[in-house]
Design a binder for these strands. Structure first.
Lengths: 193, 193
DNA sequence: CGGTCTCTTGACGGAGTTCAAAGCTAGTGG
DNA sequence: CCACTAGCTTTGAACTCCGTCAAGAGACCG
């Protein structure tokens, strides 16, 4: 159950068997069926979620009922509403499973314990947060400067596996497009070849 | 010269006089005139920049010569191309001064020393990065779900001081609009009241 | 006072949205 | 194993918002 987590963490920091045992005691395994929520808008986000297997997404429902997807999280990725998690404020996001998934959850207090007992995790999470920040910056710049077609092509190039596993209307929602527009863009791309 | 830095840092962690002295030895003061660059595209970003006084911006020039502003940094804010700073890769951003400014610079190796000699700075920068990540997430969601007028009104509400100090075409560039469009949006808003 | 920077206005065009409908696909239960 | 349904994708037509191009007017600085 912890294989993916350990292999991911060990890309950044080394873990002894004792430290792995601490992880096993602090993370809570959980299975989630396709379409099940693990966080809903107005709840408080109590856990950081690591995806061992499957695929999750975080998204916001606006006043008109439109979904806007912030993130996809396939196996090996973290997902949460970080704002709600750290402030304890209500969340503006929903997180649910796109595929049947296996997760590892860690609460804020368990995370504090983890920092205390295995301090190098501070470093791990600092790097993780840094990379996430940089990725978000890239996405902002891409939103500012690219056409819809461009953004779609970039997404395929960067995350072909995600695009392949996710319904097309969710890709549209991630790109800030309507499903109709994405369908037409794909048609145009196909014809150009 | 270090007043703003210390007061900002002390919002998150406490600093002894000895620790402040360490800071004074590791940061490099620098003045920047309006319109001067401190980073240009294809340079490597050697410093994290703290703004003691004045106003900077980071932006990217695309193939068509259009500016896209990622960030404004008035006094009390940090700015850098974090990706270039940490990886040593060439930067895709320009950073220049919108007003005459006074800065404090810290290199990567000085930062490492800072972490070593004043470990609580790890915590400070973790929180800083976290908050930046959350701010970027909000901006992405705003790009996905808001109209141009909405985004402009939100920006005024969140950072009235920045909007007031920055030329309007730069606000447009930050919002992903042409100057003409922003001008028309402002006219519409003015007429609606 | 002259030039550069900045903002505004107008006409036109294009990318993407909206609304509506129909075709396709995959999963579920009988 | 088939039939049915719900979810997903495609297509069309009309419309809207914003970008582009071009011109002019104001404001600030040297």
């Amino acid at each position: 159950m912890f294989e993916v987590l350990f292999s991911k963490v060990e890309e950044k920091i080394n873990l002894s068997e004792a430290e792995k045992e601490i992880c096993r005691s602090l993370f809570i395994p959980k299975k989630l069926r396709k379409r099940q929520y693990i966080l809903q808008q107005d709840d408080i986000c109590k856990n950081l979620i690591f995806v061992e297997k499957g695929l999750l997404r975080s998204y916001n429902l606006d006043d008109k009922g439109n979904e806007h997807i912030l993130q996809f999280a396939p196996e090996g990725w973290w997902i949460a509403d970080v704002y709600s998690f750290f402030t304890g404020e209500n969340s503006n996001y929903n997180i649910d499973a796109i595929e049947d998934s296996e997760l590892l959850l860690i609460t804020n207090s368990a995370l504090e314990q983890l920092y205390e007992r295995v301090p190098k995790f501070e470093r791990y999470f600092r790097i993780l947060t840094q990379n996430n920040m940089i990725a978000m910056q890239k996405r902002v710049m891409s939103e500012l400067s690219s056409t819809a077609e461009d953004k779609y092509l970039k997404l395929i190039a960067a995350y072909p596996n995600i695009v392949a596993r996710v319904p097309q209307h969710m890709i549209a929602s991630y790109l800030g497009l309507t499903p109709e527009s994405l369908s037409r863009i794909r048609k145009r791309i196909a014809q150009e070849r």
